Computed example of a mutant assay.
Amino acid sequence: MSKLYIVGIGSGNVKTMTMRALECIKSSRVVVGYDGYIELIKDLVKDKIVISSGMGQEVKRCRIAVEKVKEGYDTCIVSSGDAGLYGMAGLVLEIENRINFEVVPGVSAVFLAASCLGAPLMDDMCTVSLSDHLIPWEVVKKRLVAAVQGDFVIALYNPRSHLRPYNLEKAVQLLLSYRDKNTPVGIVKNAGRKGERVIITTLGKVEYEVVDMMTTVIVGNSRTYIKDNTIITPRGYPI
C-alpha cells in the first residue's frame, strides 16, 4: 500500500535533519513542497518526481500529495522545521486522513535558534506566530498577552515581512507593557542554514530592520539573563 510521509526537514540542512526524515525522502517516489524548501533539499530529490509551487498554494500542494498516494505512489510532502508546528501535517489531515500516512517530526526553528543562543528555553515556553494572514491580529494580541502574563519564554514565528512590516514592532510594544525593557531577546536568522546570523539584545533595543520571515525571535521570561553573550533561562536548580 502506498504511503504519504508528512516530513519536517528542519533547516533543510542534512546535518539537522532526522534520520527518519532522510529515510522517508529517499524511499518516496514523489516529493511535494514549497519552492524554497525543495531548493534546500534539491540534492536529495534529484531522482524523484518533484512537484513544487509558491506561497499561497498550500492547499493545492496537500491535495496533490494525497492524490499521488491514491494513484499508488509513495509520496513525501515537506515542511521546514517540524511538520506539525505551522507545517503541513494539520492541513493534510484536514483534507484526508483515511489514507496510509506518517507524520515525521523535524527540528523546529525555535530549537535551532535556541541552540545558537545558549539555553533560553529551559523553563516553560510557548510559540506565537505574528502572521495575521490566517489568524486575526486581535487573536494574536490576545495570545501574546496571555503568554507574557504567564511569564512564558516566548518564541515569535513569522515576525516580519514586506506585507507585515510592523507586526513585530507592535508585538514588542505590547510585551513592553508587561515585561522589563532589559529582558533578553535572541534574534536568529537562517538558523542552521547558510547565512546564519545571531543577535543577542534586549526587549527595549530590538532592531526591527534585521528581522524577516526567515528569523526566529526568542523573548526571555522574568528570570532569563545574559551571561558572556549567552542567553540563559534558569530551570531552578540550586547552584
Rank of each mutant, 00 (worst) to 15 (best):
I200N: 01
K194D: 15
L156T: 03
G192T: 14
P184K: 04
P184E: 03
G195S: 10
P165S: 08
R193F: 01
R160W: 00
T183I: 10
Y157Q: 03
R164T: 11
L174E: 08
Y157R: 03
I200L: 07
T183K: 12
V198K: 09
Y166I: 06
R179M: 15
P159C: 11
K194I: 13
I154R: 02
V188L: 06
H162F: 08
G186P: 08
N190W: 07
V188Y: 04
G150S: 15
F152Q: 09
V172A: 07
V188P: 09
L156R: 00
L156Q: 00
I199F: 11
Y166G: 02
N158S: 12
S161M: 04
E196K: 12
R197M: 15
A191S: 15
L163Q: 14
A191C: 14
I187Q: 02
E169S: 03
P165M: 07
G195H: 09
G186S: 03
K189E: 12
D180G: 06
L175A: 11
L174K: 01
G192N: 08
R179P: 06
L163D: 09
L163F: 09
E196I: 10
A191G: 15
L175D: 05
D151F: 04
Y166M: 12
I187V: 14
V153T: 15
G186T: 02
P184H: 01
G195A: 12
N167M: 07
I199Y: 08
K170T: 05
V188N: 06
A191T: 14
R197P: 05
R164D: 03
I154F: 00
H162E: 14
L163H: 11
D180Q: 14
L176C: 05
I199H: 07
L156S: 00
T183M: 05
G192V: 08
Y157M: 12
P165A: 13
I154H: 01
A191L: 12
R193G: 02
H162L: 09
G195N: 11
P184Q: 03
V198W: 04
R197V: 14
R160V: 00
E196C: 14
D180S: 15
N182P: 01
E169G: 03
